[in-house]
């Protein structure tokens, strides 16, 4: 592998890694607020991508289609929280897993009925003239993806660390009962977490659509990779989730260069299984996984 090729694989790794990072953030937000792993998280990413494509095809300008997609997924995430998650808060893990798995199956099938089976493209946000960097080429869309990811991560950090609402959300992650005693409305925190998690996932889906197309079945793989990324970093820690996403993306990029693109998708699962076997709390600790 020459230096140029190496750089090229790193670039594509960072692009995909940003999407995994956003999906991992989505998992983390919901997990921190509720302790639930949302198995439909990947479907929210897919829904973000396909909604943007659908609105753009219906004649909306690209920026409006992007915002429209965020709103659609926001509504879906809020409805899901109200209808399925809220009644299940008092029930066990099993019921929660089954409900979110059910939602993923329903959303995937609904997307297939609306947009068909084909993978659909979205035009890049600002042209596709590649930029040359040290002999490797970089598409403008990559900059959009990485830039938006940075903005989202910084905004989340500001929200959690500086605002009163953000501090309330963090308090609930540490101890819901104590937070409630201090006057924090736990129900609103859960709703807010689902809403933000949905919007972030949708943004990821809409931004990656110009690069890798989007079909009704893309969500399952994206969701698993996002979860692998979150687990790699340490479930429950937002910055670790971002780190996990980028690491996963770069490893995948290098695997395409060194092995073959066919096995690219298996990397995430090998990492996921390794982390679960060897170090279930992830690289940066995060919340301690209960061992017997």
């Amino acid at each position: 592998m020459t230096g140029q090729q190496f750089l090229q694989y790193i670039f594509s790794g960072i692009t995909n890694g940003s999407i995994y990072a956003l999906t991992a953030l989505g998992f983390t937000l919901v997990y921190n607020a509720t302790g639930i792993i949302n198995f439909a998280q990947g479907e929210l990413v897919m829904l973000g991508g396909l909604s943007a494509i659908g609105l753009y095809r219906a004649g909306l300008p690209l920026p409006l289609a992007f915002v429209g997609a965020l709103i659609i997924v926001l509504i879906v995430a809020v409805m899901f929280e109200q209808l399925a998650i809220r009644p299940l808060m008092a029930k066990g893990v099993l019921a929660q897993v089954i409900a979110t798995v059910g939602a993923s199956l329903a959303l995937r099938t609904a997307a297939m009925m609306i947009w068909g089976r084909e993978a659909l493209p979205l035009p890049p946000f600002s042209g596709d003239t590649p930029i040359r960097v040290l002999g490797a080429s970089l598409t403008p869309q990559t900059l959009w993806v990485v830039g938006t990811t940075i903005v989202i991560v910084l905004a989340l950090q500001f929200f959690y660390k500086r605002t009163l609402t953000g501090k309330a959300v963090r308090a609930c992650a540490v101890n819901p009962l104590a937070a409630r005693l201090m006057g924090v409305s736990y129900a609103s925190v859960v709703l807010l977490s689902f809403a933000v998690s949905g919007v972030i996932s949708a943004a990821g889906g809409a931004m990656v659509a110009p690069i890798s197309f989007m079909s009704y079945s893309s969500g399952a793989l994206l969701g698993l990779k996002g979860f692998a990324a979150a687990t790699l970093g340490g479930l429950g820690n937002p910055l670790a989730a971002v780190f996990g996403g980028l690491t996963l993306g770069i490893l995948e990029g290098l695997a395409v260069g060194l092995v073959s693109s066919g096995y690219k998708d298996a990397i995430a699962f090998v990492i996921l299984l390794l982390v679960l076997f060897v170090r279930p709390q992830g690289l940066f600790g995060g919340r301690v996984v209960e061992r017997e």
């Binding site: 792993i37 979860f227 298996a266 996921l272 679960l276 061992r291």
Partner: peptide
């Protein structure tokens, strides 16, 4: 491991076998 981990590990395992 407790909770969701068997679900995720088996989901990942299923996907590896499929690939």
């Amino acid at each position: 491991l407790k909770g969701h981990y068997l679900a995720m590990a088996t989901l990942g395992f299923g996907e590896i076998v499929f690939i």
